[in-house]
Amino acid sequence: MKDAVLSAKGLCKSFAHEGGQVHVLSNVDIDIYEGDFTVIMGASGSGKSTMLYSLSGMDRATSGEVIYNGKDIVKMKEKELSELRHGDFGFIFQQMHLVSNLTLFENIAVPGYLNKSKSADEVKARTDMLLEKMNIDGVKTHLPSQVSGGEQQRCAIARAVINEPKLLFADEPTGALNKKNTIDVLDLLTSLNNEGQSILMVTHDVRAALRANRILYIEDGKVIGELTLPPYDRADEKSRETQINSWLSSLEW
C-alpha cells in the first residue's frame, strides 16, 4: 500500500455567475500517492483543471480540505502557500508562462533563489544540470520569446523541478505543442517519474495519459472512474492505448 502524498476530502469549488453559483467541483475525495504518475482526464469543462489548481493550492477551494504533510492547504495563509510553491510543489502550465524578461536560465533559477535551504551556487549548479537534462543548455541565455514552444515548455518543466518538489503538477503541458515537442516533454516527465518524482497531470490527450500508472476520470466535477496501470514501458504502448481507450469508451468519453 502506497503512502498518500496529498489527500482531498469533500472538495468543492463554485463560481459566482450571472447572479447564481456554478459548482465546478462537488465533494471530491481523492488521494495522490507518492511516486505515482497520476493523470486526470475528462471532457472540456468537466472541472479537471479546476481540480488541479485546487489540489495544488494555486486556487482556493470553496469548501472541503486538501491535506498535505498534515496541513490543510485550503486554510493556509499566502505566505505558507508561497513556501509550498517554491518548496514541495512544482507546477507546469499549458501556456508555459515563463517570465518574458528573464532568460531561460533565470526563469529556472529564480524559484531556486527563493528557497532558503539552498545556496546560490547550488541553485546555479542544479539549473545547469536541468538545462542540460532538458536539452536547452544551448539557449540558456535566450529570452522565452527567442526560443521555440517546445524549448519553452522544457524550461517550464525545469523551473517546476528546480526545488526538487515532492509533487509535480502539470496542466495540459503538451496542449500547446506539436507532435515532436509533445513526445519530448512526455519523455522528460516519464524520466522524472522513473527517478521517483510524483506527478499529477491533467490532460485530454490519450497519448499523454499513456505515461501514467493511474488515471482518474472526472465528469461534472466528480471523479467517476479510476484505472490503474503498470509503470510505463514504450514496448507496451499499443496495448496500453487500447486498454485506456476501451476504459474511456466505457465512461462514454
Binding site: E78, L84, R85, H86, H97, V99, V110, P111, L114
Partner: peptide, 16 residues
C-alpha cells in the same frame, strides 16, 4: 497581470 501571476505561482508572496 500575467507576470505577477507567474511570480506568485513560483512562490513569490504579494508583499515581496
Amino acid at each position: 497581470k500575467t507576470d505577477i501571476g507567474i511570480y506568485k505561482a513560483i512562490g513569490f508572496t504579494s508583499s515581496r
